[in-house]
């Protein structure tokens, strides 16, 4: 479902080009959950951003459901993100000016994939029923991340990408959030790719991949 072929990426710095990813190839299927590990600066987040179409590859190709993301224009990539991808970040990235219920439904609504029954189930599974009329800043970090996960799953994506989703949470909250995410991955049968530093959290997922200096170890 997700095919990454010979992807390389460098960033321009005052000192010259800094290679971040070097000839990366990877395949992932529906129902698979992958922990992407590696040291800081190893290129984990960059790879995630490239898969999400938030950034452009230098060379190589990325396919999602047989569509080559790397050849899509911005509009095409945006359409793919809202319909087929769910994104969860360490910083939660909720829309501070919208209530929780609107944040949860946001992506599904703009992708025209909103399903009230699924939305209600998500709210129940994530335990957000009493928080729907609050604003993000009125929630704890763990609660905010549950909303972010809910938003990502609301449109039943084919691929869930998470960049250190528990980085801002304590261990108990992190475990809880990850378990909820894995439950939802199983329920929706999507592919889950999570960037993490934590071997403990990685152990919850069925595949581990390590990046080292831009190469797959």
């Amino acid at each position: 479902m997700l095919n990454i072929l010979n992807v390389s990426k460098s960033y321009a710095t005052p000192q010259g080009l800094l290679p971040v990813l070097n000839n990366i190839s990877l395949n992932a299927e529906r129902g698979q959950s992958i922990a992407l590990m590696g040291e800081s600066g190893s290129g984990k987040s960059t790879l995630l951003h490239l898969i999400a179409g938030l950034d452009n590859v230098d060379t190589g190709s990325i396919f999602l459901n047989q569509k080559e993301i790397t050849k899509l224009p911005d509009v095409g990539r945006a359409k793919m993100r809202r319909s087929e991808v769910g994104l969860v970040f360490q910083q939660f990235n909720l829309i501070p000016s919208l209530k929780i219920k609107d944040n949860l439904a946001f992506q599904a609504r703009i992708a025209k994939r909103f399903d009230q029954a699924w939305q209600s189930e998500l709210i129940e599974r994530l335990g957000l029923g009493s928080l729907l009329d609050r604003y993000p800043e009125q929630l704890s970090g763990g609660q905010q991340q549950r909303v972010a996960i809910g938003r990502a799953f609301a449109g039943k994506p084919d691929l869930l990408l998470a960049d250190e989703p528990t980085g801002n949470l304590d261990e108990a909250a992190a475990n809880e959030v990850l378990k909820l995410a894995i439950d939802l991955v199983e329920k929706t049968d999507c592919c889950f790719l999570m960037v993490t530093h934590s071997a403990h959290l990685a152990s919850f997922l069925n595949t581990k991949i390590t990046l080292k200096s831009g190469h797959l170890a």
């Binding site: 999400a52 938030l54 911005d74 509009v75 990539r77 945006a78 359409k79 793919m80 993100r81 809202r82 319909s83 991808v85 994104l87 970040f89 990235n93 909720l94 829309i95 501070p96 000016s97 946001f106 992506q107 703009i110 992708a111 938003r151």
Partner: peptide, 16 residues
């Protein structure tokens, strides 16, 4: 800017 980033990550194109 953060909101725009979130919107884009949710699949709203820069054009829109």
């Amino acid at each position: 800017r953060q909101m725009i980033r979130t919107l884009r990550s949710c699949g709203v194109s820069l054009r829109n």
